[in-house]
């Protein structure tokens, strides 16, 4: 049982991707909430004067990176939920009794959950184009994927950490709702953070999504609050912490 078992990781990744692509209803369901935000806010506030909006940037341009980040958060949280669903149906035992290290299992889930969450984010990005969104340069797409991958690792890792401390999927689902929306509203995804009270702004500074959305805005729209290097640095740190936390907490999960 090697510490990192590539074939085991691949098996878990393949399973996640197959399950995802095979249930179109799940994809539609995962896209629906971000899409509603995008369509209603994007069209409703178009042309509105929003305090703190960078000069010459249309609200839709501002909003799309935020919704892409939200779709990522939404998609990644399902990874934690699917672990608890596996436990509910007994499939988790089948995974845990295999000669594969817990670390490899966590890495497999992160690979699978990240892949499906990135697909969802990219679909939102593509769907925003008919609404009028314009990417500044084709070259920014690969960089955006790197940012999405770091965000995915952060939030799937967080989901695994949280799922490791929970035993029932219903309670987990409720908790996730209470976490997703504050993270979303406190990330500058919908409006510039300058308007918020100072104390709340500090909270935004420890929110990984803040840096993810800012970095996406930097590469997709060409405007950002922080330098891109700062955003990327913060994302690398948060991804490392959350993956480590997920692995550490899952290590202690009792199999039965």
């Amino acid at each position: 049982m090697s510490f990192i078992d590539l074939q085991g990781i691949y098996a878990l990744w393949l399973r996640d991707v197959k399950r995802f692509t095979r249930t179109p209803s799940r994809i539609v369901g995962a896209l629906l909430t971000p899409l509603l935000f995008l369509v209603f806010l994007g069209t409703g506030f178009s042309g509105a004067t929003i305090p703190g909006l960078p000069e010459g940037v249309d609200y839709l341009q501002f909003l799309v990176p935020g919704i892409v980040g939200f779709a990522m958060l939404f998609g990644a949280s399902f990874a934690g939920l699917s672990i608890l669903a596996d436990r509910d149906v007994g499939f988790l035992k089948e995974i845990l009794v295999a000669p594969v290290s817990r670390t490899s299992i966590v890495l497999g889930w992160i690979a699978g959950g990240s892949t499906t969450a990135i697909i969802q984010s990219v679909l939102i990005l593509i769907l925003s184009i008919p609404l009028g969104f314009r990417v500044v340069s084709v070259l920014s797409i690969p960089l955006a994927l790197v940012i999405l991958a770091l965000l995915a690792m952060t939030f799937v890792g967080f989901g695994i950490a949280l799922a490791s401390r929970f035993s029932d999927s219903q309670g987990f689902g409720i908790i996730i709702q209470f976490i997703i929306f504050p993270l979303f509203f406190l990330s500058g995804a919908l409006f510039p953070l300058e308007g918020l009270p100072t104390a709340v702004q500090y909270l935004a500074l420890v929110n990984p999504l803040t840096y993810g959305v800012d970095a996406l805005r930097a590469v997709l729209v060409g405007t950002s609050t922080y330098p891109l290097a700062v955003d990327l640095g913060a994302l690398v740190v948060s991804a490392a912490i959350m993956v480590g936390l997920g692995a550490a907490l899952f290590e202690r999960v009792e199999a039965v």
């Binding site: 399973r15 399950r19 095979r22 249930t23 149906v89 007994g90 499939f91 089948e94």
Partner: peptide
């Protein structure tokens, strides 16, 4: 091992 409760991925 075959567990007491079924442990299959029904979607696969």
């Amino acid at each position: 091992i075959v567990f007491q409760e079924p442990a299959l991925d029904e979607e696969l």
